[in-house]
């Protein structure tokens, strides 16, 4: 009787310890996976919003250079050509971002539009895009000016292709 009770107790205790140990590891893994999944979802949401904003920035006629003919009639907009005058005043709506998002557009580290990237934000998505700039303040870009760039003429009014960084984050 005594022996049986002792054997059962040891088995039960060891088994219980093993089960608790195993459950602890499994719950730990599940918790980590749950956290990772949540982080991935947040990142994926940011990535989609950021990619959309970047695509809008480089292709939207409201933000890109407008090519005109010699008489000033607008012909079409040029993708990847950012008009400084247009870009400087853009809002989150212009970039198709939800209202609870903020953005920053930096050219060689200098803020071009939006707000400075907050230091305390945990989730920020940034993307570098290759673009070039034109300032339409003086006059719109004509086809003639445009072709000067194509042929490598020093009189080209566009900047050389450079990287612009767009960053987005959700406002708490």
């Amino acid at each position: 009787m005594n022996d049986h009770a002792q054997i059962f107790s040891l088995d039960a205790i060891i088994s219980l310890i093993l089960v608790i140990f195993a459950l602890g590891i499994i719950f730990g893994i599940l918790e980590t996976n749950s956290y990772n999944l949540k982080e991935q979802q947040i990142f994926e949401e940011l990535r989609i919003a950021g990619r959309t904003a970047a695509n809008v920035l480089i292709a939207s006629p409201e933000l890109t250079c407008t090519l005109t003919n010699s008489s000033g009639t607008e012909l079409f907009s040029i993708t990847h050509c950012l008009d400084i005058q247009k870009v400087q005043g853009i809002s989150t709506q212009d970039l198709e971002l939800p209202s609870d998002y903020q953005f920053s557009i930096q050219r060689t580290g200098i803020l071009l539009a939006g707000e400075m990237i907050p230091e305390n934000s945990a989730h920020i998505y940034s993307e570098k895009r290759t673009v070039f700039f034109y300032d339409s303040l003086a006059e719109p870009i004509t086809k003639q000016k445009w072709m000067e760039c194509k042929t490598g003429n020093p009189a080209c009014a566009l900047t050389e292709p450079e990287e612009v960084m767009i960053s987005i984050w959700r406002v708490p």
């Binding site: 480089i58 040029i78 993708t79 990847h80 050509c81 895009r129 290759t130 673009v131 070039f132 760039c149 194509k150 042929t151 490598g152 080209c156 566009l158 050389e160 292709p161």
Partner: peptide, 11 residues
């Protein structure tokens, strides 16, 4: 991006 931008400048 580069292929589009460089094309404009023939680079």
């Amino acid at each position: 991006d580069q292929s589009i931008a460089f094309n404009y400048f023939n680079q």
